[in-house]
Nucleic acid binder design. Structure first.
Lengths: 360, 360
DNA sequence: GTGAAAGCGCTAACAC
DNA sequence: GTGTTAGCGCTTTCAC
């Protein structure tokens, strides 16, 4: 059976083997200039001969940081999040940082716990996609001593760097596009207003509807529960039970959209499907398959990730310029050619007044 | 601007504040029984009063493990992988382990580097989804001293715990189903045979074709490059350029499948689409939208993750029973009702001889 | 340029 | 039951 490995090689053994002091070994490990090429050579030889591997935890204890970034997200199995993560990883890893990842499982309580774990592990910095709009636990004294950036979901009263997409802008654009196509009744399928993105997108919807002078029909505004597939599935199901429902809907995220489309494909045979029209947030790998979709709001996932990482790295270099900074990405509108009016140009200008300003 | 936090509270200050020794503080932190309720009380009060947070890195240095699991995957933005990850996280976090995650970016070289990083950080155990079938760098002396499980892709000559899906079985089942539907010409869209899953699935395809006495037409077997969306897109494009191509294809994974379907939806209008039929690996959230798919092989992602984590935890508890263990999950075949012959029963029995044995 | 020594915050003998 | 003490493996003054 497998046996415990012998004690790993330490700096001490390398020193002995090379006939120098541990200080010298440490110097060559850390590329200190003050080492004779000759000794450096000896030490290197010893290191590779012995198969030395530096112990980062000892090092961390001494230098009081860990070259580690803590990441907390509401769930891991989420395309949006993973895309951002992947992009962050590239820049972090290149700078010698590694990522510690936890899921808050969409629970504030769990989020709190994971925050605690991160502090105990003394991560150097934190990137958080918050579960909800409750943010008290981000205020701790301990926490405030390390850089943190909030991603994707804005926390009302929190004094931190934030990077997110201009949700309202995205919604407004696609609603306008729907209006230009001629739809006058447009429903909203979203989630609990305690989810910051849900709230923002709802606000954008309300706004756009007002600007277009259209009535919001409360009966066709869904604001309950999670923004997941199941919820999208059941929402569209309930909608179709009603007589005289709107033909067009804005759907607040990809999961809801997926659920809704799945319901339609499962329930109706190809020739027989209701002629619904969707516009929604997120344009992901599988979005081309979303048959009822005319317009999708594409968030620049990769850039977002890169930008988060770079901002954090700057803070880590003790550059606090612009703090607390809010980086707002303007999303891109994708026209799904198969279904929509292809010649629309984005951003769509308001005919009446000047278009609303987007600070990006 | 933001200022560095004061020095964090240590065990020492708690001790002073509570009027006890640091050993006692350590004892209450670690729930040692040998502490009077009264002192325990005092110490706890001091801890919460001071806002003490245990320093895990110091602890790790002392006890010589980190309660940390290293994870290396070829890419992070991959639904399959993330689903497994999410499930692992649940069981690890419950046992007090946290996960350090790196991407090997589909590069063997990068994989090697990340392995090194993991060793430096002295993770307690490793879960690896290998990039390819080259496995020399997993043999190191240092590495062999910690538990490791290889997931999803089997490494030929490597003496480790492994958990994966029975790829051949899955392919064989869906090919049989296709055959029973009446297809006699079935192509294969896969990827480089250096990717272990691609290889296994190809082998399963060959096998099933032989059993069904069907000819493998080399012209319609795609074994090049990555198993990604782009490759799926261009493969189907090339296929359609040929006269007299087969109607049915097995596609080796979800990304290829997505690419292929996207091409078809973009290129042909709804009434006008070629009547292709696909069977493929992976049944994911968006699979119901894969219009041309008749059969999908569903890997029990959640169970796989759970099983990896539990196996690793057992090894961590020094239970080496059955090492090296190979856990083979038998996949489930999903019949896509909208498109396929719904009444097929899985597993499909061979009419002629006994069905091949699957050890699970 | 190199070595001796102190100490990062913690745990675990070992005394008492 | 509680305190004293010796490190875990490393970095970093400070002498030489």
């Amino acid at each position: 059976m497998k046996r415990e490995g012998e004690n790993p090689i330490t700096i001490r053994e390398v020193a002995r083997c090379a006939g120098v002091s541990i200080a010298t070994v440490s110097r060559v490990i850390n590329d200190s200039l003050t080492v004779t090429p000759k000794t450096r050579e000896k030490v290197s030889a010893a290191m590779i001969g012995l198969g030395y591997t530096r112990n980062e935890v000892a090092r961390s204890l001494k230098i009081r940081h860990t070259r580690t970034i803590g990441i907390i997200a509401p769930e891991l199995s989420n395309t949006f999040f993973m895309e951002v993560l992947e992009s962050m990883e590239k820049v972090f890893s290149q700078r010698g940082y590694t990522m510690v990842i936890c899921s808050s499982s969409n629970s504030v309580e769990e989020e709190q716990k994971k925050l605690q774990v991160m502090m105990e592990r003394t991560v150097d910095a934190l990137v958080i996609i918050p579960v909800s709009d409750v943010s008290d636990h981000f205020q701790g004294k301990m926490l405030s001593s390390i850089p943190m950036v909030i991603v994707d979901r804005q926390l009302p009263r929190l004094h931190t760097d934030t990077v997110l997409t201009d949700n309202r802008y995205g919604v407004q654009q696609v609603i306008k596009a729907l209006v230009q196509e001629g739809f006058t009744r447009i429903g909203f399928i979203g989630g609990s207003l305690h989810i910051p993105t849900a709230k923002e997108r709802y606000a954008g919807y309300l706004n756009a509807m007002e600007e277009a002078n259209l009535t919001v029909e409360g009966e066709y505004v869904f604001l309950e529960g999670a923004m997941d597939q199941k919820s999208g599935y059941s929402s569209i199901q309930r909608i179709l039970q009603k007589q005289d429902h709107p033909q067009a809907f804005f759907i607040a995220n990809d999961l809801l959209h997926l659920g809704a489309t799945t319901y339609l494909m499962e329930t109706f045979s190809p020739g027989n499907r209701p002629s619904l029209v969707f516009a929604s947030f997120d344009y992901l790998s599988y979005s081309p398959l979303l048959q009822f979709c005319h317009y999708a709001v594409f968030q620049p996932l990769e850039e977002i990730g890169k930008s988060v990482a770079e901002l954090l790295l700057r803070r880590l270099d003790d550059d606090w310029e612009g703090f607390p900074q809010q980086i707002l990405f303007k999303p891109e509108i994708k026209v799904m050619h198969a279904n929509a009016t292809p010649q629309l140009q984005f951003p769509i200008q308001d005919s009446g007044k000047a278009s609303s300003q987007v600070n990006c």
